[in-house]
Design a protein around this nucleic acid. Structure first.
Length: 454
RNA sequence: GGUGCGGUAGCCAAGUGGUAAGGCCGAGCUCUGCAAAAGCUCUAUUCGGCGGUUCGAUUCCGCCCCGCACCUCCA
């Protein structure tokens, strides 16, 4: 069964297949802006894309090229650098490293190519130059270059923005007109090149239109073109990117290249936290480190992010993270009882994944197998399921914390009391340990200590 | 105002024109001196409301109620 995935543009399920004669599947996924630690909402998108990547590699072994960019110059990165009195490069390096570390912890495969915006200035300038020459762009008085939306008939196909504009209460339109009326010919035109402003500081590059920096949208068009060619097979991102980012990418790329940009568009939905949109003011914005500090493993987060269908909003809760930890533990226990056996029982799991990346359906099918017991279930195929989902069971175990000496001393005392069958003393010591936040697990010939969950 | 998505057990969440997967929590049991761990068992006559189509609808259609997201740089 081929992988079927919803296409945001045609709004239907379409099978995934390479469109180029070389059989290489070209996959572009919009990456992060590296100005702060990514939050779990960001990671939902990256984890979903990672499962997609893994499925593609199982389907087209050795023939997948996955490109994911890093946005390392924009208003936010520049502001951060300015606020901290550091260079743009220092700031973006720090958060790029952090992003990589978090992705590794979440068992997300690194993309085959991870291009940066600042590393592709020339490619972006070249594209803008073509757009200027073809009449799809114009230079404003201040040296900025804008894309002329009216020059591209296909504009709005992805997001149906034209339908929107017809009936817009025009409040938003007025707002954007007020801001940009001086420079843009039309409110819907967007920046390809932003003329240098004083607050940009040293972050400026030369161009035929004067010093400045590239607009946000052009970077993906340029990097996609450079690393995957004019036409790619799949372009993905979070739902918020559908408009304007992806709409603008299509316009830029198709006008510049004169050919279809992407065969397939896929957008994953956003994450809610405790039923509300994540925001700093609500105090419900979590990073991976926040959750680690609460004692959760990164793998539990990965699992929790896969519990909902990628094309539905998912409500993240701490309770859900607990559920994820427990579910992972069940999978670990189940795995230890496995040897070789029937690989076919896992077919429903893969069928669910191939059917529009239905991860909750796949997990449900998986636990249906788990509940039938390990007899005759094939270990290697189970492992392949874990590989597809990117669940590293080994890494999901809670890190073994070493108990401090005072705790060990108490535990030793209790162990001695227990062996002396002094139950009263033993129970009192157990209580004491519990109060100190440690659970003492008795085994046949010794004990282990583990910290209680916060 | 426009566009799109959704409302399924205490929480999270699949799914189907033919009578509700799964996870968590909870309860009971087994095993343990106790506890934990592990294992077993149980837990929605019901799928936002009202109509309609149908032999039959949670699943299709209509209306209504509620929630959420996007609408220029937020994954």
């Amino acid at each position: 069964m081929p992988i079927q995935l919803f296409d945001s543009l045609e709004r239907k399920l379409k099978p995934l297949a390479p469109s180029h004669p070389d059989g290489v599947y070209r996959f572009y996924n919009c990456g992060p802006t590296v100005y702060a630690a990514a939050h779990i909402g960001n990671f939902r998108t990256f984890v979903v894309n990672d499962v997609l990547r893994r499925l593609l590699e199982l389907e087209f072994p050795g023939k997948v090229v996955h490109v994911r960019n890093l946005t390392d110059v924009d208003d936010k990165t520049i502001k951060r650098a300015r606020d901290e009195g550091r260079s743009l490069n220092e700031v973006t390096k720090q958060w790029t490293d952090k992003f990589h570390a978090d992705c590794d912890a979440l068992n997300c495969l690194r993309p085959h190519v991870e291009p940066t915006a600042t590393g592709h200035i020339a490619e972006q300038v070249d594209m803008i130059d073509v757009l200027m020459k073809k009449g799809n762009a114009y230079r404003a008085a201040d040296g900025s270059v804008y894309f002329k939306v009216s020059s591209f008939d296909g504009y709005g196909r992805l997001s149906r923005v034209k339908e929107r504009e017809l009936q817009v209460g025009t409040a938003l339109l007025h707002k954007s007109q007020a801001v940009d009326a001086d420079e843009k010919e039309d409110a819907t035109d967007f920046a390809l090149w932003k003329a240098h402003k004083t607050e940009d500081g040293a972050n400026s590059w030369d161009s035929p239109w004067g010093p400045g920096r590239p607009g946000w949208h052009i970077e993906c068009s340029a990097m996609s073109k450079k690393h995957l060619g004019d036409t790619i097979d799949l372009h993905t991102g979070g739902e918020d990117l559908l408009f304007p980012h992806h709409e603008n990418e299509i316009a830029q790329s198709e006008c510049c290249n004169g050919t279809l940009f992407a065969h397939h568009w896929y957008h994953s939905k956003h994450l809610l936290v405790d039923g509300a949109k994540m925001s700093k003011s609500l105090g419900n914005l979590y990073t991976l480190d926040d959750l680690k500090a609460k004692g959760f493993s990164p793998m539990a987060l990965r699992y929790a992010l896969l519990v909902g269908h990628p094309r539905k909003q998912l409500n993240f809760t701490l309770e859900g993270l607990h559920a994820a930890e427990s579910a992972l533990k069940s999978l670990r226990n189940f795995r230890t009882g496995l040897s070789s056996g029937d690989a076919g029982v896992f077919a429903p799991v893969f069928a669910a994944l191939h059917d529009d990346l239905n991860t909750p359906g796949a997990l449900g099918a998986l636990f249906t197998i788990v509940n039938r017991g390990p007899a005759g279930v094939d270990a290697a195929t189970f492992d392949r399921v874990m590989l597809a989902l990117g669940l590293n069971l080994k890494a999901s175990e809670s890190p073994k914390a070493d108990a401090p000496a005072e705790i060990t001393a108490l535990a030793d005392k209790r162990w001695a009391a227990k062996n002396a069958k002094d139950w009263a003393a033993a129970d009192a010591l157990r209580k004491e340990l519990t109060a100190l936040g440690w659970n003492m697990k008795d085994a046949k010939d010794g004990y282990t200590l583990e910290p209680l969950k916060k």
